[in-house]
Amino acid sequence: MSLSAQRSIGANVLIGLSFVFVALALVVPLALIFSFALREGLGAYFDAILKPDTLHAIFLTVITAVIVVPINMVVGAALAWLVTRFKFRGQQLLVAIIELPAAVSPIVAGIVYLFLYGNQGLLGPLLQSIGLQIMFTPLAIVLVSLFVTAPYVARELVPLMRQQGTDDEEAALSLGANGWQMFLRVTLPNIRWGLVYGAVLTNARVMGEFGAVSVVSGSIRGQTNTLPLQINLLFNDFNIAGSFAAASTLALIAVITLVLKSMLESWERR
């Protein structure tokens, strides 16, 4: 197919339109973040980033991701294995439930956790009596982050594993491998890019979650403020430059995510 050799005028128009849209809708917004963050110079930029509250917000955001991403990788792999390798009653329901967190408003995610762990919630009084506080602590932030990103890894792995089929794994078993050997030597190498891809998306969502976290965090400065909450807080403090400086760290992570994702895709194709 000699598509690129003789492109029609129509094709060029379509390509041009795509570039215009992507530039206006995506590139300009991205550029604006860095432009506003750096408007008052590098010195002011680093001052804003290095303020203890903002630093702590970065720390808390990273810690949350470090905990949530591995857990959801393991669970996502288990779910994908279950759904693609076995047939059982209730399978469709299971798939629908795991997808639910991604389809529902993050505010709803925050609320269901408040109704469960708040002092007036379902389990709150019980937990309170044994001295365990979940609401308004970093633990609550980790829990809602697990909730909102629950489907991400499985969503990448299920189509991949379905498409790959079970031949390789059955062959490994018939050659005498045990379950774990089969998983580590055959399954894992087959799905590794999908797994990493899901992890990258999970990470981006965890670091950026706003609605759900704002319900359960209590917004204690320097303690339970994640980066997105800190951005909002700085904005309401009339500190627009600081707010953009904090936003630029997340935008940078977004750019890294895109680069990683694009690299992973080309490796996957090879």
């Binding site: 408040l114 762990y117 708040g118 002092n119 007036q120 919630g121 709150g124 309170q128 506080q133 979940i134 609401m135 308004f136 602590t137 209590g218 204690i220």
Partner: peptide
């Protein structure tokens, strides 16, 4: 409300 729900 937050204190009633457990804000320490």
């Amino acid at each position: 409300r937050a204190v009633l729900e457990g804000l320490q």
